[in-house]
């Protein structure tokens, strides 16, 4: 049965917003919830102790909780933070950098390989599995056809059953991470004195071409897609391919309704697929430019 997961929140939401969001998430038919800060180590709306307590609360409602970690790790303090999470948390850790994979491997902890580990073919996946990876998230730019080939070959060439496969199926795509903070740059501030301006943009800061075509969403050091990826209409294709988990990434604090829509489809409670919005994209899945929306009808 296809599982539904909720990605770690990508934006800088304050404590009250996060707590309300996760209180709502606890009520939703989600199987897996990823928690933690993946974009900027300066953001500390919740402390490590807060995240651990929240993880425990959510786990007690029957959710599988995974703690996620930073995508761009530069400072030793950022490594220490990841090490603390590994030492204090019993469950799975999502590694968005090879550093965390290495630390999890040494501590013999279960690990999920995040999409930025760039797993594109079977030998890479096999190597990561041998390092302790129990679940992996496909790169955002991977097409359905390429994923199909990878999983087919994996089955043919290895005796291992593959780690669980997860695909970001709804939400803005994380497209790049930089040393530079673009939100601070927009505010004419250096990153070291950023005044946490990203808190002013709880859905990111949209970037348009000079013809006002939406392109990207600036979110601190992260650049996201302007369009929301939406593979919900294609959930059966994902299932047939062998995808185990469909990931939803929140673009606003009140967007969790989509979880119920997907759950009803999977459970056969509803055959009605909601119409795609003009801001949706799915190009990557169909092997074309990610920003495109391919309509099969």
């Amino acid at each position: 049965m296809m599982k539904i997961s909720l990605a770690a929140v990508q934006y800088f939401w304050d404590r009250a917003t996060l707590m309300a969001f996760y209180a709502q998430a606890a009520e939703m038919p989600l199987d897996i919830i990823y928690l933690g800060e993946t974009v900027c180590s300066k953001r500390r709306a919740l402390s490590v102790a807060d995240w651990l307590a929240l993880a425990q609360d959510l786990a007690s409602t029957g959710k599988e909780v995974v703690l996620s970690t930073l995508t761009l790790i530069e400072a030793e303090s950022e490594l220490s933070l990841a090490r603390t999470l590994l030492e204090k948390f019993d469950g799975m850790i999502e590694a968005n950098d090879y550093a965390v994979l290495r630390m999890a491997q040494q501590l013999q902890r279960p690990v999920c390989a995040g999409s930025t580990l760039n797993v594109y073919h079977p030998l890479t996946l096999q190597t990561l599995q041998e390092c302790g990876v129990q679940r992996w998230v496909a790169p955002v730019e991977m097409s359905g056809a390429s994923l199909h080939d990878l999983l087919q070959q994996y089955a043919l060439e290895t005796e291992l059953s593959p780690p669980q496969t997860e695909v970001l199926s709804y939400g803005r795509l994380p497209l790049a991470h930089s040393a530079r903070c673009y939100t601070a740059r927009y505010a004419n501030l250096p990153k070291d004195q950023c005044e946490f301006r990203c808190a002013d943009y709880p859905e990111g800061l949209p970037l348009f071409s000079q013809e006002l075509q939406g392109l990207f969403q600036i979110n601190g050091i992260q650049t996201q897609s302007f369009a929301r990826c939406n593979l919900i209409p294609h959930w059966q294709q994902l299932q047939q391919l062998g995808v185990d988990v469909m990931r939803i990434s929140a673009s606003t604090p009140d967007c969790l309704g989509v979880v119920q829509v997907l759950r009803d489809l999977i459970d056969g409670q509803s055959g009605r697929i909601p119409a795609a919005s003009s801001e949706d994209c799915n190009g990557y899945w169909f092997g074309v430019a990610g920003m495109k929306h391919v309509s099969l009808i």
């Binding site: 995508t71 761009l72 930025t116 760039n118 594109y120 790169p139 955002v140 730019e141 795509l173 497209l175 790049a176 991470h177 930089s178 040393a179 530079r180 392109l215 990207f216 650049t223 897609s225 190009g283 990557y284 092997g287 074309v288 430019a289 990610g290 920003m291 495109k292």
Partner: peptide
């Protein structure tokens, strides 16, 4: 390159062709 190299998908998002692949 101002993004962490190998993890920048801006080009494929707009053109379909990526530095990685």
């Amino acid at each position: 390159c101002i993004m962490a190299e190998g993890r920048c998908y801006l080009s494929s998002y707009v053109t379909g062709d990526s530095p990685n692949n």
